[in-house]
Computed example of a mutant assay.
Amino acid sequence: MRSAALLDHPARVVALVRLAAVPVFFFGERLIDHPEAHSGAFRFVLAFGVVYAAVLAGLAFSPGRRPLPLRVTATIDLALLGGLTYTSGGPFSQLRYGFFVVPVAAALLRGPRETAIASAAALTCYLVATIAYPDSRQDAVAFEATQSLYFVWLVMASTLLSAVLARRQRQIVSLSDERGRLVARAIEAEERERRRLAEALHDDAIQNLLAARQALGSGDDDRPADLGLVRTGLDRTVSQLRDAIFDLHPHLLRHAGLAAALQAVADRFAERLPDRSVAWEITVADDATGPTDEVVFAIARELMTNAVRHADARSVAVEVRRRQGGIALTVSDDGRGIDRRRARDAPLHGHIGLASCAERAEALGGRLQLASAPGEGARVEVWLPADPQA
């Protein structure tokens, strides 16, 4: 928990990295031979660095205190690193490697533009600290040029890395926003279905029961009851209640199996759309049923509904088989097809059917693939692990 809380505060992480650099710089200057031109000032610059790192760490870990702006600390860091490098050997100082940390840190913490600026500033400080260093060795220029070449390569790599990370961050934010919209639309759809069910029960089933009760009479008069009307009202009510129960949870799925439940969905479309003839082909392999039946049924029913109601399909094939160690559901139709861009933007307009299917599959470790084009029908393949709880 403490490490997770620490990672939520980049300023604290940077403060710890800065503190950890102090002993590294001290021993790096002591353990390696280097020119002695300005080594006397090194201890004073390092002492300032210790105080500076401690103060920033105190600010970062003090609750309620705002750390210094990043531009200020970055400027001081580079100036301090340049001073330490200059006073500990210039181009041959082991502390020069500290400059190479700057582009990588900027790439992880900032965007590509800020990374390029910070990297250019670090390269400038490095060149000033090394070129200005008085050294009579013949290989100093070649050494500085080689180090600068590596530094430029690191700057380019860090900037590109920062661009990749920034792009992924935007994608994550976009996916998070889309999922939030999807959840909101799902809640709205659930509430809409609740209202539809309540209205259907009130306007149809209850009215039929009231009519049947009226047909029975009050019992206070001698008027015979119209048993035919009563029977008709009760039959209609039973049929309406069965439809409502099937919409809530298909009892056939538990008692008769997945194939029978999917066939019942197809039969219900035939009853509700008597003016349209849809050819159904439903195939469920015997070894493809089990713990995933309810999820497969829910996704298949949604895809079948899309094919008939939204794509005006005349032929729909539903197939459930075992594949690649899991359960593969395939729903193909000859309807109008689906434009991929419109399918991607559909949740923004309240159409969450296909997106909810993908969400259900991915939540169980599966996947959904769409193959379609306008006017050429659609083929949706859903793969689920055989045991979602494994």
Rank of each mutant, 00 (worst) to 15 (best):
L95V: 03
R96L: 10
Y97V: 13
Y97F: 14
G98N: 04
G98P: 10
G98S: 06
G98R: 01
F99K: 00
F100M: 11
V101R: 03
V101G: 15
V101Y: 15
V102R: 03
P103Q: 08
V104S: 02
V104A: 09
V104D: 02
V104E: 00
V104Q: 02
A105G: 12
A105F: 04
A106G: 08
A107Y: 08
A107T: 08
L108H: 09
L109T: 12
P112C: 02
R113H: 11
E114I: 02
T115C: 01
T115I: 03
T115A: 02
A116T: 05
A116P: 05
I117C: 00
I117G: 01
I117L: 09
A118R: 04
S119H: 05
S119C: 02
S119A: 11
S119D: 04
A120E: 00
A121V: 07
A121C: 15
A122H: 04
A122Q: 05
L123Y: 02
L123T: 07
T124N: 01
T124R: 00
T124A: 11
C125P: 09
Y126S: 03
L127H: 08
L127M: 10
A129L: 04
T130Y: 02
A132D: 01
Y133V: 00
Y133T: 02
P134A: 05
D135K: 00
S136Q: 14
S136H: 14
R137D: 10
D139E: 13
A140H: 10
V141I: 15
V141P: 15
V141Q: 14
V141G: 14
A142C: 01
F143N: 12
F143L: 07
F143W: 15
E144I: 14
E144M: 10
E144F: 08
E144W: 12
A145S: 07
T146C: 00
Q147N: 15
S148N: 06
S148T: 15
L149P: 13
Y150R: 10
Y150Q: 11
Y150I: 06
F151Q: 01
F151L: 04
F151P: 07
V152S: 01
L154Y: 05
L154K: 04
V155M: 11
M156W: 14
A157D: 12
S158T: 09
S158C: 03
T159R: 15
L160M: 10
L160E: 13
L161H: 05
L161N: 01
